[in-house]
């Protein structure tokens, strides 16, 4: 786990302009359970369009896919025992270092798949602050369409991520409808522009300390210790504020 990815209270901070020449790092979370799966297919199409678009702007994109199916046992272990296995840690590290995220999940029972929500449940609250996220879901019926905006969006709001305006949803009939491509294009534009703006990095540089963190949070990268807090003064024999 590289240290100093985020500025910390000990003063390490990544220079804002360093990223100008670096490829964008795109993390793709897919909670599809078959192979191939329509959930993964939807994520891949968003990723492909985003890469093409970034290339038009002279930028390359490195994609990392987190197939939750492959780490489902690691996720359930973490849920019940606090044990973060190396495979789960690798997924967490990918997310923590991503410039943009595509989150794609199936809807089964009028809600996001349990595999997807379980994965989100074991993430630190401060792992993806301000990171642009494309929300995508697939389902067997169009009656699940609002899950993206009503459940997924609020979940990522809790994580203080920046969900892009366009939510993507594909029921069976959408796969034959060019309108889905249009929405995918729209989402790709929103994602790439937000990555280009460097918004997430700027937020982290400007106000990382103003979000709540715990020792070892942000996927294990938050290891700065601020000795100047009221609690630290209390620890050293002072009195509670």
């Amino acid at each position: 786990m590289p240290e100093g990815t985020h500025p910390t209270s000990t003063g390490r901070s990544a220079p804002v302009n360093d990223a100008a020449q670096e490829p964008f790092s795109l993390a793709i979370i897919s909670a599809g359970t078959s192979d191939p799966s329509s959930t993964r297919l939807l994520a891949d199409r968003i990723a492909d369009r985003s890469c093409e678009l970034a290339a038009c702007h002279g930028r390359t994109v490195t994609s990392n896919v987190i197939e939750l199916r492959e780490i489902s046992a690691d996720i359930s272990s973490a849920l019940v025992s606090q044990l973060i296995t190396p495979r789960l840690q690798a997924a967490i590290t990918v997310l923590g270092e991503a410039d943009g995220i595509i989150a794609s999940a199936p809807v089964y029972k009028a809600g996001l798949s349990g595999l997807f929500t379980s994965f989100i449940d074991v993430l630190d609250d401060d792992l993806i602050i301000a990171r642009p996220v494309v929300l995508a879901a697939t389902a067997g019926t169009a009656r699940h369409a609002l899950v993206v905006d009503e459940q997924m969006r609020s979940m990522f709001a809790y994580l203080r991520a920046l969900t892009i305006p366009t939510g993507l949803f594909a029921a069976p009939e959408d796969w034959g409808d060019p309108a889905l491509n249009k929405r995918i294009d729209r989402a790709a534009v929103e994602l790439v522009l937000l990555m280009e703006s460097g918004f997430a990095r700027k937020i982290r540089d400007a106000s990382w300390d103003s979000y709540q963190h715990e020792y070892g949070s942000a996927g294990g990268t938050e290891v700065g210790i601020d000795l100047g807090t009221d609690l630290m003064r209390l620890a050293a024999g002072g009195s509670a504020a």
């Binding site: 359930s76 272990s77 849920l79 019940v80 025992s81 044990l83 296995t85 190396p86």
Partner: peptide, 16 residues
Amino acid sequence: PVYGHGPSMEDFMDLT
């Protein structure tokens, strides 16, 4: 009580 029904004993021995 705490880690049962979760990771395998071998994983737990490797990682803890």
